[in-house]
Design a protein around this nucleic acid. Sequence first.
DNA 1: GGAATTCATTTAACATGTTAATCATCTCCC
DNA 2: GGGAGATGATTAACATGTTAAATGAATTCC
Lengths: 176, 176
Amino acid sequence: MVRKNSNDVRPGQDDDASARRAPMREFSRSLPMSLLRAREAVMRQFRPSLRNHGLTEQQWRILRALTAVDEIEVTELARVAFLLGPSLSRILRDLEARALIERKAAENDARRAVVSISAKGLKLIEAVAPTSEVIYAAITRRYGARKLAELQEMLGALEASLAGMGSEDAEVAADE
Amino acid sequence: MVRKNSNDVRPGQDDDASARRAPMREFSRSLPMSLLRAREAVMRQFRPSLRNHGLTEQQWRILRALTAVDEIEVTELARVAFLLGPSLSRILRDLEARALIERKAAENDARRAVVSISAKGLKLIEAVAPTSEVIYAAITRRYGARKLAELQEMLGALEASLAGMGSEDAEVAADE
DNA sequence: GGAATTCATTTAACATGTTAATCATCTCCC
DNA sequence: GGGAGATGATTAACATGTTAAATGAATTCC
């Protein structure tokens, strides 16, 4: 079995070529990977339960967001549920077909659509929520409530740090 | 303008129905959402640069992983690049068509495929890497190197906490 | 030594992510 | 009040995530 781990990196073949450039961050320790793996570890806990109720993670996010408001415009919903417009559009079509949500046009603006959760949708939420809460509690217990709060605070800070950094790119501006 | 924020939650209409159940975690503060938003904030920085070089995030992950080894089997690569088999399979097909990687059968086992990065692939990596490093450095500077290290440590710990929790449906009853 | 099983990888099918383009409405401004 | 642009939502097109099934090759078992 060939196990490639941290240290057996690139046998010969590029000794002098790579001497000049930094070896780059050890791949598995990059920030995006760390975040991806952590999130996957968390979602792995929830997916089976959601699946048992015929919901995907994103559909659940949308229904959950809808329980917190009476009604909401699509754009706002996209922001709250952290979904891109096209994804949301498709999912709303599906949820509406399943009668889990209701949709109508805004009163003053025919462009805007207003969405709300249906009674059936609420019922589904209420069926799923207890299990989700149990799972969340188990995660909190395992990791530690205080540590979890601290982690979330740090994640929020990271997001905030990068907020303004958006598009100050040198090379992107160069091309087009 | 209808702004629904943290406080104007659920106007009437379900007063007694919701009296019994806990209001559930404020949605935007759930752990999965925090992780998703943080990761998106980070990836938003890298995507334009990768795109300029014709790479998606996942393609980049694969090529990056391949630079760290001489050659690697597909299953191992999936583990290292944190991709599911089907995704990896599709991407490898594409990368091979673009001559960025090479693929051959394993010597002792015709089931296994062995993948390595091509000279062209290496060249591409070398073209992208500097920009990526600059972005990573900017993120580190903004957020703080020490804080970043601490965050990664906490993310790793979270992953570890949840490691055994996977599928206690029936089978993993065997102790750890 | 061959049927049954396991294993590595791929294909299939559907849902979402991502960017660009489209479509309808709305706003502004002359 | 009508046309140029802005805006909200959807559609289009392609890439990946996710689970199940299929394929092909090795291993086990009798």
